[in-house]
């Protein structure tokens, strides 16, 4: 884990992606943004990502598909789902599958910060 943790954000909506990235940066973290999951998987930031924030509804590859892909390929990354379409069943399933947080848009900065903190502190303790 590098001293400054990298947070990758995958969201197809430009405005939403920029807003989330702006908020994460204002929390003092470094971000990388991606329009879709494929760009993220191909990027050099992929391997350095300490925490992934992914939108759920995206064309071609959705947030959950990306998460499953990461598990399946043996490169799990602590993940936070964000969505404007909150669904309690989805939330339950996601959390059961090991997703760290399921947050609704608009994001509450405190929740987001708490979530990212828990991810990174877990990561730095290195349980894996």
């Amino acid at each position: 884990m590098s001293e400054k943790s990298l947070i990758s954000i995958v969201d197809d909506h430009d405005a939403s992606r920029e807003a989330v990235a702006g908020l994460v940066r204002s929390l003092g973290l470094v971000t990388a943004v991606f329009e879709n999951a494929f760009d993220f998987l191909k990027s050099e930031e992929f391997s350095r990502t300490a925490c992934l924030i992914a939108d759920i509804r995206m064309p071609r590859m959705t947030g959950p598909e990306l998460y499953n892909h990461l598990i399946a390929t043996g490169t799990p990354i602590p993940t936070i789902f964000i969505t404007a379409y909150v669904d309690e069943r989805d939330r339950e399933l996601a959390l059961k599958a090991g997703v760290h947080c399921y947050l609704s848009k608009p994001l509450s900065p405190d929740d987001l910060l708490a979530c990212i903190r828990s991810v990174i502190s877990n990561g730095s303790e290195g349980p894996e």
């Binding site: 909506h13 939403s16 702006g22 908020l23 204002s26 404007a84 848009k105 608009p106 994001l107 900065p109």
Partner: peptide, 18 residues
């Protein structure tokens, strides 16, 4: 419509933190 509104809220939060 909720989408840009959510972005506005998030951006405003970020702005206040900056």
């Amino acid at each position: 419509v909720n989408q840009p509104l959510a972005s506005m809220v998030t951006n405003a939060d970020a702005g206040m933190r900056w």
